[in-house]
Design a protein around this nucleic acid. Sequence first.
DNA 1: AGAGTATATGCAAATTATTTGCAAATAGCG
DNA 2: CGCTATTTGCAAATAATTTGCATATACTCT
Lengths: 145, 145
Amino acid sequence: MSQKLPNRDAVSYGEAIRSKSVRVTKHRLLIMTALSHERLPISIRDLTKKVRSCNESTLYRSLESLVDAQLVRRVHLDGAAARYELSIDRPHHHHIQCVRCGLIQDVDICVRSKEEAVLRSTPAFASVVDHSLEFFGICKPCASR
Amino acid sequence: MSQKLPNRDAVSYGEAIRSKSVRVTKHRLLIMTALSHERLPISIRDLTKKVRSCNESTLYRSLESLVDAQLVRRVHLDGAAARYELSIDRPHHHHIQCVRCGLIQDVDICVRSKEEAVLRSTPAFASVVDHSLEFFGICKPCASR
DNA sequence: AGAGTATATGCAAATTATTTGCAAATAGCG
DNA sequence: CGCTATTTGCAAATAATTTGCATATACTCT
């Protein structure tokens, strides 16, 4: 069921963090390790339950740094709260969420090839550094209900 | 500067609303009209300043109905608050935002053709009803700074 | 390894964003 | 026009995020 990721060790996350010129701290390692155990993007509220030693403010601030360093991705699905997932150690992907029941699944679609067209369509921009893409649909159980 | 949209009249929005079996109310018409004057997605906080006669709770609730009816789209860019824009009377589009200064521009890219691939990649879903796609980049002024 | 400095963290409180309960108002139906 | 389901205002609750400041810690340099 809960297909785990290859699961690096903390040292390895340390290298990943350092390579982005972000300080390697105990909390950031814990956070990345916790994220590596999640199959889907997780909210800060839920993450506090998994990284109990880490203050909520620290979570917010650390996740912001990690997002800036592109080690973590911020995902907006339903609901007001952002969710976070590791952006390394797994292929680039997006999500689809059921608008009825909230089910989330990964989607292996990439629109990076569209970035060139984006730049053509918006002459005000010099480069594209990232994108967020989420799909919303109806899952089979909900469709047949 | 603030390139206005073709600008329907309220009666016409009324038809659009009714056609989605959502009640046509004074506030919903005001909200849609206000959105029609915006060139870019606007937060609820800013919208309260434009639709002063409308209580903030009503804004939240009305926008939710209008989003459900697909008359309005909810957009997540930087910052915690969602932004809203009319989804009718303008071609389907997305956005790009500068990660340095926050500048937002429309992008005429469509990934609807990917929906088929999405369904192939996620057998748990019966259909795709919507998607959100936002790009982040660096605008030319920021790039040369 | 130790000292110094810039950055990260904890804690508490502020701010911002969103949701909710309930009574009064109103849209749409017949 | 009267009836009923839905919407709205208002105030308060809850949730999400940010901030200030004192202390702790990572990293650089020696």
